[in-house]
Design a protein around this nucleic acid. Structure first.
Length: 293
DNA sequence: CGTTACCTGAAA
DNA sequence: TTTCAGGTAACG
């Protein structure tokens, strides 16, 4: 569930609470064995306990707990993972899968309904995450960098953007929102974008992600921040899960289709279909049909 | 490249 | 009862 803005919100919440603290214990709850991907809990415990947390970073949708020996605990929340900063006396959290006890008495609780989340400790995080594409809120993410990731691709634009090797951190919500903002249809071939479209898409990606961070993420169902609070971005989405509702730009009913196996939401008027787009005479905007019922 | 599996609970 | 879910890896 969590995409870049949600993971970044959690990072910002937790960083001041955990950085500088020493890890005093690591426990895997019943049902949490899966998140270690076969690594014995004892092995992780040996790498974590006694270490001090020196920084809390993020790369794409991964949270990076930097340890004082240079190793990094890499956490991915996948669909339903969450990390809460709690006190031991706080009420239990449902679907608890693992806990990290910190010096000073507080703990980090990892909950995960669907058990897709992953925890791993690696010596070289950069190497482990080397497959990820550019960081969309980083300085290096320019329209040119975006195009370098998309050019030559025949996959639907949406699928290419969901691929973390192209751009790191976009997920289903923010891709749909970015494509709407850019006025691009989800199924146009990724490599077919013209220069103006690349620029629009780049700006839209940066804008929707920043907006998501500012609103502390989107809580459609399960997502909650590092203290268990909901985000606000779900109140501001323009297409995501707004099937049948009027587009707030042109009034056309938002459509839902499936692209690359994922529910996809778009405005048929603001995001002209791939074929129409390619046929449009260059440089002359096509007339938009009048808004009437 | 598209499809399926992974897992569980909520909503239809 | 069936379908769907904000992610990704493993298939064919």
């Amino acid at each position: 569930m969590p995409e870049l803005p949600e993971v970044e919100t959690i990072r910002r919440d937790l960083a001041p609470l955990v950085v500088g603290r020493r890890i005093v214990a690591f426990h895997v709850a019943p049902g949490g064995e899966r998140l270690l991907a076969g690594v014995p809990a004892a092995a992780l415990r040996a790498q974590l306990v006694g270490r001090r947390l020196t920084a809390l970073g993020r790369r794409g949708k991964y949270l990076l707990f930097h340890l004082d020996d240079g190793a990094v605990l890499i956490v991915h929340l996948r669909m339903t993972g969450a990390l809460f900063h709690r006190q031991p006396a706080d009420p239990p959290d449902p679907f608890l899968r693992a806990r990290l006890l910190l010096q000073g008495g507080a703990e980090l609780r990892f909950t995960d309904i669907r058990k897709f989340g992953t925890w791993q400790v690696v010596a070289d995080a950069a190497e482990t995450l080397a497959h990820l594409g550019p960081e969309p809120l980083g300085r290096a993410f320019t329209a040119e960098a975006l195009w370098a990731a998309l050019r030559g691709r025949t996959a639907p634009l949406k699928s290419a953007l969901l691929n973390q090797e192209r751009v790191a951190g976009l997920g289903n919500i923010y891709v749909d929102e970015a494509l709407f903002e850019a006025g691009l249809h989800p199924t146009v071939p990724a490599g077919s974008l013209r220069p103006a479209e690349r620029a629009r898409l780049h700006a839209a990606i940066v804008r929707v992600l920043r907006q998501g961070v500012r609103r502390r993420g989107a809580s459609f169902r399960d997502y909650a921040d590092g203290l268990g609070r909901r985000g606000r971005q779900q109140h501001y989405v323009r297409v995501f899960r707004r099937t049948g509702q009027p587009c707030d730009v042109c009034g056309a009913p938002i459509r839902r289709t499936v692209v690359g196996g994922r529910a996809t939401h778009w405005c048929p008027r603001c995001q002209p279909a791939a074929q129409a787009r390619r046929k449009a005479p260059a440089g002359r905007p096509r007339r938009r049909p009048a808004l009437s019922a």
